[in-house]
Design a protein around this nucleic acid. Structure first.
Lengths: 245, 245
DNA sequence: GTAATAGTGTCTATTAGACATTATCTT
DNA sequence: AAGATAATGTCTAATAGACACTATTAC
């Protein structure tokens, strides 16, 4: 391999396996709101290594199906849940010699926010079982495969942090929702109470919602239903939610 | 490969090359403050592909030298600059079929903040030349190898965003510095003026600096010199710098 | 009517920006 | 003393939390 080659000659003689190439995969923390708790999807591994252990869903890149990294993440999500247009965010990439017994490995980690009643859980050849687990139950008692507990912790931390200054929780609610439901979603993730008026001012100032015209009724005054505005990317506030003084 | 194997048997017969494995590397955006500008280190590629083009420094993981991903980033930084304890932050991972002519590739991207006068630039076998480039000069005119312009844009965006609510710029200054120098650093990165009293209140409230006891003299009133407190991780403010009203 | 939750008005405490003022050095 | 920059005092405007109050439904 001399510098006098043309690029074409170089590429012809190039063999990826001449170099140290880590085992590279994509893992997902798929979050949803269920039973008034933030929950994450875990799969029981049906293959070695870590056979039988609970793990974040994930897998290898498919060179034919995936054009870019996020495609692999979306594909994994769709395989497990059937959901195909979630909020998806890359969190971090973990790599090291010891995190997988097969050798030096790298995992690119994403989290997704989905509406759980749009989901049809489905295992596949790589998992015996799939389940939602409240993130509060992910304690020392529950073992996860590989370093997935750390990976998941990073995803939860990112989510909690961003909920302090973005409108992310909108993505955990169905098409139409009330402001009270949205506030409760924030409160569940932040694990603290938010003052109603402050919250509504904040959302109103962000100008990210529109009324659907419909109302949610119950045994009391009906509430206006809102949806995210069409152009609705995530809104970034310049101040964190402060919470009770 | 049946499910009846033990994990040991599985690992024995496992061959990483039976799967789609992307070419995985680490790239660095090394930032410094030089001539009152934020600058980034670029290297001229001495090898195919993209021979002769300017690129972010980077390279492959070394399974012997690198225990975890960040080791590879630190090693690349030290090879180019001699700096060994920088502020280092993982930004994002880019992967796709088309970003490198050698095939499906993944790059884990970090940025580093270093003090440029502690640096001894040194090329090595993979680069003809190394230089600092002001980020304002990274325009349409300047071509970068692969998708490095996008990669760099992501690093710059992350840095600028975080400077709004963290104390990151401390890492761009030498051991001792004045509050005015720190303020100027913020102003350069954010590209806007900050009101002196607001800035000093903010830094004071964060309680991240300590006086060194030394003064910086000039042709006017001397200024106190500060250093980051020993336990000094980065401080996260709950509000962004607002800037002029 | 009562119960319940939706939605609003408004006070107060906090705080960031503005900007004037004072302090301390060199020449 | 003049010039320059460091450092601080303090006013004002903006705004988040607190909390009381009104509105609208089911029963």
């Amino acid at each position: 391999m001399t510098a006098k080659q043309t690029e074409k000659q170089f590429l012809k003689s190039y063999n990826i396996h001449d170099f140290d190439v880590p085992l590279t995969s994509v893992d997902m923390a798929i979050f949803t709101l269920k039973d008034e708790q933030l929950q994450v999807l875990l799969v029981k591994r049906a293959q070695h290594p870590a056979l039988g252990q609970w793990a974040l869903p994930g897998g290898f890149i498919d060179f034919k199906k995936d054009k870019v990294l996020a495609d692999a993440a979306r594909r994994k999500l769709a395989e497990k849940t059937g959901v195909d247009t979630p909020y998806l965010e890359q969190v971090a990439t973990f790599g090291g010699a010891d995190r997988d017994p097969r050798g030096w490995s790298v995992t690119i980690t994403y989290f997704a926010l989905i509406v759980c009643d749009e989901v049809e859980l489905s295992g596949d050849e790589s998992s015996d079982d799939v389940k939602w687990v409240p993130i509060k139950d992910i304690t020392n008692k529950l073992e996860l495969a590989f370093d997935h507990k750390q990976v998941l912790a990073a995803c939860i931390e990112r989510l909690k942090n961003k909920v302090q200054y973005t409108s992310l929780p909108v993505n955990l609610l169905p098409e139409e929702f009330t402001l009270t439901e949205l506030q409760q979603t924030f409160e569940i993730i932040l694990d603290k109470k938010i003052e109603k008026k402050s919250f509504r001012r904040r959302i109103d100032d962000a100008d990210i919602l529109e009324e659907t015209g419909n109302m949610k009724t119950g045994s009391n005054r009906p509430a206006k239903l809102y949806r995210a505005k069409p152009k609705g990317e995530n809104f970034y506030f310049t101040r964190n939610i402060e919470g009770p003084r």
